[in-house]
Design a protein around this nucleic acid. Structure first.
Lengths: 221, 221
DNA sequence: CATTTTTATTTGGTACACCAAATTTTTTAT
DNA sequence: ATAAAAAATTTGGTGTACCAAATAAAAATG
């Protein structure tokens, strides 16, 4: 029952993973400290601990790199986070932009079994409410096959996966039309005249400018 | 985001509340330490902290008593614990005896709002899978109207609320008959001959000895 | 190349929540 | 009342995770 919380280990690994995948730029102590909003001294200390636990390596040039085991732990934490986000949105009726903090707490619940049951309960979702992919129980992420709606074929059905522009204005606009990750749409036609797109969403037909269509990532159904 | 975990505060208050309601016997440091399975020095230190936070009082005779505010906090923690237990059993398909540890973790998630949504999602249950009552959002517990099956009237329908004997043997026995908190039963008759009870459970008819009937608490439907 | 700036690291702290062992106080039993 | 037992308390620790401020090392810039 000792419940070695190691609560923060997961935060470090998760943040590190995201930083590594942001740019191929090397991650240093400063970057990690800023991302975690913690004092560099604290972070250095913890990074050394994690190096001892073989979760990451401190390279000679002082950059930090996750080991395979660290990456896996990070991915499993991301999995937990995203599944809880789905739960909060789908079952607890939160809005997708309200769930981050809560998921941040829930992701630290220690039980692989619970996470798998949650996964099943939610119908094995592939994406969280923000459109980010959910790793499977082995930490594997399905290759993302999504493309901008602007590159799609008229007459076919798609699932909205993610939004590129995440500005409030854009999200507000799409929110009114009920366009959000997970929703099914049908691309009716591309109108040559003004390069606009005619789309069916929940039995309603809406028009998108090309700019909008470029910012909506979808996957064929 | 202050993340004042005060994770353990909730455990102390919850345990204290249960001890206070067990017997009218005064709760002392030893009793609390044993219940929490912690060193008395640790517990004394924490008890003083909690007294400072006005969650409890250290009486002149060295007994510990929760303040109203401490009681409320305890009840709200118990509420969280029991709602999560219902969630784990009803939605995650755990067995009622598997959920304690997990609920122990989940109860510390900080969000009153989430708890209320969970409550609604679960259909405002009045009892957890062990048959213990779930306080409402104000910490109020419905008066428990349950009585031993042995005191019931033949011919009436009842809901199993709780089990007094919680020994493995007893639970095993009832498990086989599908008797567990929440289940609906009908008391067919009391047999004078050997003081046994004839009960209908899910279209089957079973016989209980008086001893068994005394250990099953039910509520009229 | 020397100087400023940035980054890394060390040092000496903090709070929380825990422990074992020694000591004191209180209670109980003789 | 006194000795033994139990309970309360004190003392000096632990590990985790954090911080500010000082210093050292590395990188960037004139």
């Amino acid at each position: 029952m000792s419940h070695f919380a190691h609560h923060s280990e997961e935060n470090y690994l998760k943040t590190l993973f995201k930083l590594e995948n942001r740019k191929d730029k090397k991650v240093n102590n400063t970057a990690l400290s800023k991302a975690l909003n913690l004092n560099p001294a604290t972070v250095l200390e913890m990074v050394r601990k994690l190096a001892g636990r073989k979760m990451l390596q401190l390279l000679p040039d002082k950059s930090i790199r996750l080991t395979e085991s660290g990456k896996k732990k990070a991915l499993l934490t991301i999995r937990k986070h995203r599944l809880w986000e789905v739960f909060l949105v789908e079952k607890m009726n939160y809005k997708w932009n309200e769930v981050h903090e809560l998921a941040e707490q829930l992701e630290h619940i220690e039980s692989d079994d619970l996470v798998d049951r949650l996964d099943s309960f939610l119908g094995y979702p592939s994406f969280d409410p923000h459109g980010d992919p959910i790793p499977d129980k082995n930490g594997k992420v399905k290759p993302n096959l999504s493309v901008p709606l602007s590159d799609c074929m008229a007459g076919k059905n798609y699932t909205v996966i993610n939004l590129i522009d995440t500005s409030d204005a854009f999200l507000q606009f799409l929110g009114k039309l009920n366009i959000l990750p997970g929703i099914k749409i049908k691309l009716l036609e591309k109108l040559e005249y003004d390069n606009s797109f005619s789309v069916e969403v929940q039995k309603r037909i809406v028009q998108f400018s090309e700019k909008v269509a470029k910012n909506i990532l979808v996957q064929p159904v």
